[in-house]
C-alpha cells in the first residue's frame, strides 16, 4: 500500500514547529512515530497537505521529574516509558500501559503524544478504500449513516489508546502549545466524547508534554488489558486503577478508568464513593465493577461482540483494582 502525496516539513526546534503550524493555517499535520497516522493515510482515511515530522525536535524527548511532578516529553517513545525504572516504581499503571501497546518494534517508534492523539476506531471505518467504496460514507467519514448501529444519529467509534486511561488514573495533565501561548489541561479534557472527532486539539496546536503529579503516601496502580493476542492487538476493553491507602489499609483515594469502552476513556466516578474510607474488600470491588459495566458503552464494531466485551468490563475492572492493591508494597 502506498502513501498519498503530501509535502514534508521537518522543523528541528519546537519554536520552528509552532511557527510552521501557524504559517500553514493548521494544514501541517504532526507526524510523531507515524505508527497510527501512516496506516490511516495508506487506507485513504486522511489526506494531510503537509506532514510535519517531529522526530528531530530533541527538546520534546525524555522523562524528567522534581519532587512534585513527573514530566514526559510528547516525543518520548513508548519503549522509554515502559523501561523507565522511575515509572515502574512509582507509576506502574503507566509503565504497564506503555508496555502493552502493539509490539516491541512499534513501541520503539510510537510516542506518548501520538498515543494520546490517536483517532477512534471502528470495524466499518478502518478498512481499505476498496472495501469502503462499496458503502456510502458513514458519520465518521463525513456521511450520515452508521453501519455499527443502523438508524443511529451519531458515531460510536471506539477510543482504543492504552496510555490515556492509565494517565487519567494518576490525574495527569497535558501541556498544549501554539505559537505564542501554552495551556495545561487535565487529560480527560483532551477528549470530546464524539466518535466523529474524538480529540479536542486545534489544528495549530501541539501536545508537547505530559505532566503527572507524584502521589503522596502509600499507593499502588495497575493497567489490565483484554485482547485476543498478547501482542499487536489494540485493547477490546481495558481498565486502569489507582489506589491510595492509609496506615490502617483504608482507602484514601481511588480512581478507576476504562479504555475501549466508548469514544473517550471512561472514568468510573462511583469508585470514590464506594471505596473511600473503607478496606479493599471483594464486595466493594464487585460494586465498582458493576458501576463500570453500566458506564461502558459498546456496540458491535470491534473484533468481538459488544455483549461479550461489556461482560469483560467487570472482569478487567476487578483485576485492575486487585492488582493495584497487590502492587502496594
Amino acid at each position: 500500500m502506498r502513501l498519498p502525496s503530501f509535502n514534508y516539513l521537518e522543523p528541528i526546534t519546537l519554536t520552528d514547529a509552532l511557527n510552521l503550524m501557524e504559517e500553514y493555517h493548521g494544514r501541517a499535520q504532526p507526524l510523531a512515530g507515524g505508527t497510527e497516522l501512516l496506516p490511516r493515510m495508506k487506507l485513504g482515511l486522511t489526506h494531510p497537505t503537509y506532514l510535519m515530522s517531529l522526530k528531530e525536535i530533541h527538546e520534546l524527548k525524555g522523562i524528567k521529574s522534581n519532587k512534585n511532578e513527573l514530566y514526559i516529553g510528547g516525543m518520548t517513545s513508548l519503549r522509554e516509558i515502559f523501561l523507565s525504572t522511575l515509572l515502574q516504581q512509582k507509576f506502574l499503571a503507566i509503565s504497564e500501559a506503555a508496555g502493552s501497546v502493539a509490539a516491541p518494534p512499534l513501541r520503539n517508534m510510537g510516542t506518548i503524544a501520538g498515543n494520546l492523539c490517536q483517532d477512534t476506531r471502528c470495524f466499518f471505518y478502518n478498512q481499505s478504500y476498496f472495501w469502503r467504496r462499496g458503502l456510502k460514507p458513514c458519520f465518521k467519514a463525513g456521511g450520515n449513516v452508521c453501519y455499527a448501529v443502523p438508524g443511529s444519529k451519531k458515531c460510536f467509534s471506539v477510543y482504543q489508546g492504552d496510555l490515556a486511561p492509565a494517565l487519567i488514573a494518576f490525574n495527569a495533565k497535558v501541556r498544549i502549545e501554539k505559537k505564542g501561548s501554552s495551556r495545561i489541561i487535565p487529560i480527560e479534557e483532551l477528549f470530546s466524547g464524539k466518535g466523529e472527532k474524538p480529540i479536542v486539539i486545534a489544528d495549530d496546536e501541539l501536545l508537547t508534554q505530559v505532566i503527572v503529579p507524584i502521589p503522596e503516601g502509600i499507593y499502588g496502580s495497575s493497567y489490565r488489558k483484554f485482547r485476543l493476542r498478547n501482542a499487536l492487538d489494540y485493547p477490546l476493553v481495558s481498565a486502569a486503577a489507582f489506589l491510595a491507602i492509609d496506615s490502617e489499609k483504608k482507602v484514601k483515594s481511588v480512581k478507576v478508568v476504562l479504555g475501549a469502552a466508548g469514544p473517550a476513556p471512561v472514568i468510573v466516578k462511583e469508585a470514590e464513593d464506594i471505596l473511600k474510607g473503607k478496606k479493599v474488600e471483594e464486595s466493594a470491588i464487585n460494586e465498582i465493577a458493576e458501576a463500570a459495566y453500566k458506564r461502558a458503552q459498546m456496540v458491535d464494531n470491534l473484533g468481538l461482540p459488544a455483549s461479550y466485551r461489556k461482560k469483560m468490563v467487570r472482569v478487567f475492572t476487578k483485576r485492575a483494582i486487585e492488582n493495584a492493591f497487590n502492587s502496594i508494597k
Binding site: 507526524l31 505508527t35 515530522s53 518494534p105 520503539n108
Partner: peptide, 16 residues
C-alpha cells in the same frame, strides 16, 4: 534495524 533497534520500515518515511 535502525540504530540497532527493530522498526517497521513500512511505517517510516525514507526522508525520516
Amino acid at each position: 534495524l535502525m540504530d540497532g533497534k527493530p522498526i517497521r520500515s513500512c511505517l517510516m518515511l525514507a526522508v525520516e
